[in-house]
Design a binder for these strands. Structure first.
Lengths: 144, 144
DNA sequence: TTTTTATTTTAGGTCTGCCTAAATGGCGGT
DNA sequence: ACCGCCATTTAGGCAGACCTAAAATAAAAA
């Protein structure tokens, strides 16, 4: 009874995010193998989670084909993706991390909505700053 | 086989951190009830985790008394605490979050060492900046 | 000392997320 | 049409982290 109680605690977020990103690269039915690969899990695990997401109405699953995000799923995934982008940016441009994408992927589903939102703000502010001081300078965020 | 495989994946970190903080407030043997309360878990859960930590050599447990961090445990907890402080600072002074402490507590064990380290750097830089421009100004980090 | 009360511990169960090994389905080549 | 191969799925298990309810224990009250 500790969690929010709803669908999509912790780990499922990663799957949603992976699905979301995959759908933007190739046409929608995303194969479990694909998901398994990007998340470094067994194919069986991916299939299982896809079934779970389907049960929660976040994806539609076509057996032996793959899964496609539903509107609900896409909404969730979209938020996650926003957080992911913000985190990725932060880890790369502010902290100077190499593994910014993986790190962002892992944390995107774990930070609270509040953090996600404020972080996105930071990112937008930074983009804004960049746009104004536009003399093709390398990195305005992190000084060399 | 995905994780590091060792002692102290995910959740145990929270217990270590709670223990570390508790030990700094009152004398060492920290009662399970205490831990349970601060982590919002059942007493049974706390007892169980304390036993686990004891099995991993991170605490010494005195039944019906509580647990005390071993050197190994304290080392781990100390790192965690550093991350916790950095995160807490970041959430409060940079993101302006209310729940900075809880949030920091939850994430401290989840961010990679790399993130922890760089974040700590940021904090020290900020403290340094504060120290130099020392005319008792309220908050140099976040403008009012 | 005996009883009461508060706390801790054990017992038994659940749920999530994952794995390996063994089916099973889909498809291309012959 | 049949055979193999590869991807997916099922089956069966396992460990972590949690819970509730029922013992056990320590400490305070009577």
């Amino acid at each position: 009874m500790a969690d929010v109680g709803e669908s999509g605690s912790t780990r499922t977020a990663r799957y949603l995010l992976a699905l979301y990103i995959a759908e933007h690269r190739t046409s929608p039915p995303v194969a479990p193998g694909r998901v398994a690969e990007t998340l470094d899990r067994s194919p069986a695990a991916a299939t299982e989670m896809l079934q779970r997401l389907a049960a929660d109405g976040l994806v539609v699953r076509e057996p032996y084909e793959g899964a496609t995000l539903t509107d609900a799923g896409r909404a969730r995934a979209s938020d996650l993706h926003e957080t992911y982008v913000a985190l990725s940016w932060f880890f790369r441009d502010v902290l100077g991390l190499d593994e910014h994408e993986r790190e962002a992927m892992e944390l995107a589903g774990l930070v609270s909505p509040a953090v996600a939102e404020r972080l996105a703000h930071l990112l937008f502010e930074d983009l804004d700053g960049e746009a104004r001081s536009d003399d093709s300078d390398a990195s305005p965020t992190r000084e060399p």
